[in-house]
C-alpha cells in the first residue's frame, strides 16, 4: 500500500515541480516585460499574454501539490480534540470528497476543452498566442491530479483507521513550514 501511495504522489510532486518552474518563469517574465517596455518601448503581445497563461499551470497543477503538502486550509477546532480513529475517519471523508469534486470538475471540463480544440481557439489580438485549448486543458489535468492525491489520502486514512499507529508519511523532500 505504501508503494502505491508513494507512486501516486510521485506524479503530483513531479507536475508540482513543473508548476514551481512556472513561478520562476513568471517572476522573470513580468519583470522583463516591465523593463523592456520602460527602457526600450518593446512589448510583444505574445509575451504579455504569456504572463497570465503561466498562472493557469501554477494554480491548477498546484492544487494537488498544496494538498499533498497539507497546506489545505481546514478548521481544526473540533478535529484536534477527536480521538485518533475519528481523525482518520474525518480524513477519509475529506479524501473521498476530494476525489468526487476532482472527478466531477475534470469530467465537466472535458467538453469545454474539446470545444476550444475544435474551434482551434486562439487570442483575438493579432500577435497573441494560439492554441487556447492547451491552456484550458490544465483544468481537467489539475483536477485529475486532485483525484489522484485524494486516492492516496484515502489509502492513508484507511490504513490509519485499521491501525492508528500506521503513518504512511508523504515523501517530502522539502520542508512545509511555510504555510500561508
Amino acid at each position: 500500500m505504501k508503494s502505491v501511495v508513494h507512486r501516486l504522489e510521485w506524479l503530483v510532486e513531479s507536475l508540482g515541480g513543473l508548476a514551481r518552474l512556472c513561478i520562476l518563469a513568471l517572476v522573470l517574465l513580468v519583470a522583463t516585460n516591465v523593463i523592456l517596455r520602460y527602457l526600450f518601448s518593446i512589448g510583444p503581445v505574445a509575451l504579455q499574454e504569456l504572463e497570465w497563461h503561466l498562472v493557469s499551470p501554477i494554480a491548477l497543477l498546484g492544487l494537488s501539490y498544496s494538498m499533498k503538502h497539507r497546506a489545505d486550509v481546514r478548521i481544526d477546532f473540533l478535529y484536534e480534540r477527536f480521538p485518533a480513529r475519528l481523525c482518520a475517519a474525518s480524513d477519509l471523508i475529506a479524501a473521498l470528497l476530494t476525489v468526487a469534486v476532482g472527478a466531477i470538475i475534470a469530467w465537466l471540463s472535458l467538453a469545454y476543452v474539446n470545444q476550444a480544440y475544435n474551434l482551434n481557439e486562439g487570442s483575438p489580438d493579432p500577435g497573441g498566442l494560439p492554441m487556447r485549448y492547451l491552456l484550458k486543458a490544465f483544468i481537467p489535468l489539475g483536477f485529475l491530479l486532485l483525484v489522484i492525491q485524494g486516492i492516496a489520502d484515502s489509502l492513508r486514512a484507511i490504513a490509519r483507521i485499521h491501525d492508528p499507529a500506521t503513518d504512511l508519511a508523504p515523501e517530502n523532500k522539502l520542508s512545509t513550514e511555510t504555510s500561508a
Binding site: R20, I23, G62, S66, A71, L174, T178, A180
Partner: peptide, 17 residues
C-alpha cells in the same frame, strides 16, 4: 530558490484552491 518556489507554490495554490 527551491524552498522559496515550493513555499510560493503551496501558498498560491491554496488561495486558488
Amino acid at each position: 530558490m527551491k524552498e522559496t518556489l515550493h513555499g510560493t507554490l503551496v501558498i498560491t495554490a491554496m488561495v486558488f484552491f
